[in-house]
């Protein structure tokens, strides 16, 4: 399997807090990698560092044949690495289709082409019925889906999804799981930060676990669920 994204020894410190401590990860083609860990483990910081929103203190991020550390976010996005935000950030006064269109412009400069591609993405993400609705009228669940659609419209090779299922009801989670799977099948590699474990177990080829900024385990979902270090991180040490 060819490696699309290679995170090597990435570190980030905020004052006395070590948000990331020499984290290394790799992502292969058409792979879905789950990224889990307790709150404050450094998952979102890792996304921010990889996508250029935060500059890591040390380490490198190999993507598209180069080290992208130091590049601004828009340049990394243009290389084919898209992300969503944990706190959704739609363009509230634009319609759903226009929101996605803004992403589509990255590969389709002509407005007509961008609009057509946006409609395709809306269909793939099952948002087509809402195309003309202003984004600020959507429910949280649909906003999360829009966030995903917009990132997808940039036609990335790697997609970083930050808790796109948090706060959704079980039906919405199932829908989103199906959408993520379709996106992967269309040829995109995905890293997924998620607390909804049922979704993680269903979707992910591998799962990586962060705790206090350190990568404490990485492997098949079933093995991770049995890993003593992971259990301890979530539930605390066993009492002897």
């Amino acid at each position: 399997m060819t490696t699309l994204l290679e995170v090597e020894e990435l570190s980030k410190r905020y004052g006395g807090l070590q948000a990331l401590a020499r984290v290394s990860l790799s992502l292969g083609e058409r792979e879905i990698l789950g990224l889990i860990g307790p709150n404050g483990a450094g998952k979102t910081t890792l996304f921010a560092a990889v996508s250029g929103f935060v500059r890591p203190d040390e380490g490198r991020v190999g993507f598209a044949g180069r080290n992208v550390v130091g590049l601004p976010p828009h340049a990394i996005s243009r290389l084919g690495l898209a992300r969503t935000f944990q706190l959704v950030q739609p363009f509230p006064r634009l319609s759903v289709a226009e929101n996605v269109m803004v992403g589509a412009f990255a590969r389709h400069p002509a407005p007509r082409d961008a609009h057509r591609h946006a409609l395709d993405v809306l269909e793939l993400t099952r948002l087509d019925a809402l195309a003309t609705r202003p984004a600020h009228t959507l429910s949280v669940g649909l906003r999360k889906r829009l966030e995903l659609a917009r990132a997808l419209a940039t036609q990335p090779r790697v997609l970083l999804l930050d808790e796109v299922m948090a706060g959704l009801n079980p039906t919405e989670v199932d829908e989103t799981v199906a959408v993520v799977r379709r996106v992967r099948d269309s040829g995109v590699a995905i890293i997924l930060i998620e607390h909804v474990m049922a979704a993680v177990m269903q979707l992910c080829d591998r799962v990586a676990v962060l705790h206090h900024g350190e990568l404490i385990a990485c492997g098949a979902p079933a093995d991770i669920a049995r890993d003593p270090a992971v259990v301890a991180a979530y539930l605390g040490e066993e009492i002897h």
């Binding site: 996508s51 929103f53 828009h74 407005p111």
Partner: peptide
């Protein structure tokens, strides 16, 4: 308003971080 540049301006106005994540040089 109907051009790429127009949409990029509005995207920057509405949310600069989101615009940057979509490849827009704000």
């Amino acid at each position: 308003q109907r051009s790429r540049l127009g949409y990029e301006m509005v995207a920057v106005r509405e949310n600069e971080a989101a615009a940057a994540a979509l490849g827009i040089d704000a």
